[in-house]
């Protein structure tokens, strides 16, 4: 009976499986294959020469990769610090107000990321919402924060806020109240409760949130383009340029592969260290 069940299960999963392989895996394989092709070819029927990778090193494309990783790391760290108190409140303090907060944060996702970023551009630009009103009301002008590196980090923090907040709140909800109380009772200060009890027990949520934010930020392009005005070129920008203006598919593919392998490696390593089932409240 169990064997029949299993075969029926496999059979039922077949259509979606095929669809996933075709739509998800096949493009990746194509990109992987293109990454080893000679420069500027548009066919996979060439001798692989791995030249794209040497171009990446010789022409300094690794710098955009470092920018991406650096910005992603900074944004993730800031997101963690900002979201922790809020997530703590949602999980342990706010009660029904948490729902309002959740809705408010989720609503922002209903508007396209680009539109929201343009909103910030209009707000922050020279003669924009802030600068304009300051000029009219007080006769003072402020230098625009746009087109600098901090505003890119700000954009990343703003856009990926929900991706840190919700996993973190989920993680903190897993910290048993009595363990916190027992630690306090045994003499632990607030700081000690945070470091010895809260952080380790909320670790799965911290890891999921950080991974999501890091992975998404590392592949993000809109923030550096719209807010940063391409002050720095990030890896996703280079990939796009290689495929479009550059007409160099192998270079774009090679850059993509490096990003995919790096991020994939970090994600797999991170996810292997946590118990997602426990986090979702399921027993194994």
């Amino acid at each position: 009976m169990e064997r029949i069940n299993r075969r029926l299960g496999l059979l039922s999963a077949l259509p979606i499986g095929v669809l996933l392989v075709l739509s998800f895996l096949a493009p990746l394989l194509v990109v992987a294959a293109f990454s080893v092709m000679p420069q500027k070819v548009f066919s996979l029927l060439n001798m692989p020469d791995f030249s794209a990778f040497s171009v990446i090193v010789s022409q300094g494309y690794y710098r955009s990769l470092l920018w991406s990783l650096g910005l992603a790391f900074t944004a993730t760290a800031i997101l963690f610090v900002i979201c922790w108190p809020l997530a703590y409140g949602m999980a342990k303090v706010f009660g029904r107000f948490s729902l309002v907060l959740t809705l408010a944060v989720v609503m922002s996702l209903f508007v396209s990321e680009n539109i929201r970023l343009y909103g910030w551009v209009l707000t922050l630009m020279k003669g924009g919402l802030i600068d304009g009103y300051l000029g009219v009301w007080f006769g003072i002008g402020l230098p625009s924060p746009l087109y600098k590196i901090p505003v890119i980090v700000f954009g990343l923090v703003y856009v990926y806020f929900p991706f840190m907040l919700f996993p973190l709140a989920q993680g903190i909800a897993m910290v048993p109240d009595d363990a916190r109380q027992a630690a306090t009772d045994l003499g632990a200060s607030r700081w000690r409760v945070l470091t010895a009890i809260d952080l380790p027990l909320a670790a799965p949520g911290i890891l999921v949130g950080s991974l999501l934010c890091f992975v998404l930020s590392a592949g993000a392009v809109a923030e550096s383009k719209l807010l940063g005005g391409q002050t720095v070129i990030v890896i996703a920008d280079d990939v796009e340029t290689a495929f479009t203006f550059g007409q160099n598919w192998p270079l774009g593919s090679a850059l993509s592969m490096i990003l995919i392998v790096l991020i994939g490696g970090i994600a797999v390593f991170g996810l292997s260290r946590i118990d997602l089932d426990a986090m979702m409240g399921r027993n194994r």
């Binding site: 048993p176 009595d178 363990a179 109380q181 027992a182 630690a183 306090t184 009772d185 045994l186 003499g187 632990a188 200060s189 010895a196 009890i197 027990l201």
Partner: peptide, 17 residues
Amino acid sequence: ANKRPTCMVFQSLALFP
């Protein structure tokens, strides 16, 4: 509580898992 020289064994025991 953390400054009192007393301590409690919880109903749930509250061990650190």
